[in-house]
Amino acid sequence: MKEEQSVISVISYHKTEKIIKYNQQKYVKTQHCLRLYKDRVQSASHQFDLENINDMSYRPFTDAGLLYLHTNQGVFAYEVNGDPDHFINSYKRLKCFIK
């Protein structure tokens, strides 16, 4: 377990899950936070060490956008409503010190 550190940047994201109950299909949208620390990025269900993240990118859409984490485990997409520039720029500044 990592020792507790200060959060450098936070961006909220939505996760949409399809649930089938009593032969009815519903979509449930929950809100979570993506947190950037000096050594990792942490979501509700994943933790990525900064050295294992190769890049971050963003693709805007009409009502939201997708923030992509390009990792050594694959690409992970997070649906964000706000502008992720601060989060991405904070990551890029940290990444310069790791290389």
Rank of each mutant, 00 (worst) to 15 (best):
K2Y: 14
E3V: 12
E4P: 05
Q5S: 12
S6H: 13
V7Q: 07
I8T: 03
S9H: 06
V10D: 08
I11T: 07
I11R: 04
I11W: 05
Y13S: 04
H14Q: 15
E17N: 14
I20F: 09
K21Y: 14
N23I: 06
K26D: 10
K26W: 07
K29C: 05
K29L: 02
T30S: 15
T30C: 10
T30W: 05
Q31K: 15
L34P: 01
Y37I: 07
K38N: 14
K38T: 10
D39R: 09
D39W: 05
V41F: 00
V41A: 01
Q42L: 07
Q42H: 04
S43W: 06
A44V: 07
A44E: 15
S45K: 12
H46R: 15
Q47D: 10
Q47M: 13
F48E: 01
D49A: 12
D49H: 12
D49R: 11
E51I: 14
N52R: 12
N54S: 11
N54D: 09
D55M: 06
P60T: 05
P60M: 06
F61W: 10
T62P: 03
T62R: 13
D63M: 11
A64P: 00
L69N: 02
L69R: 00
H70C: 03
N72P: 01
Q73D: 08
G74H: 10
G74E: 08
V75I: 13
V75S: 08
V75M: 08
A77E: 13
A77M: 10
A77I: 04
Y78I: 01
Y78G: 00
Y78T: 00
V80Q: 02
V80C: 02
N81Y: 11
G82M: 07
D83S: 03
D83V: 00
D83M: 01
F87V: 00
I88P: 03
I88V: 11
N89G: 04
S90I: 00
S90V: 01
S90M: 02
S90Q: 02
S90D: 02
R93W: 01
K95R: 12
C96S: 10
F97W: 07
F97N: 09
I98W: 09
K99A: 07
K99R: 09
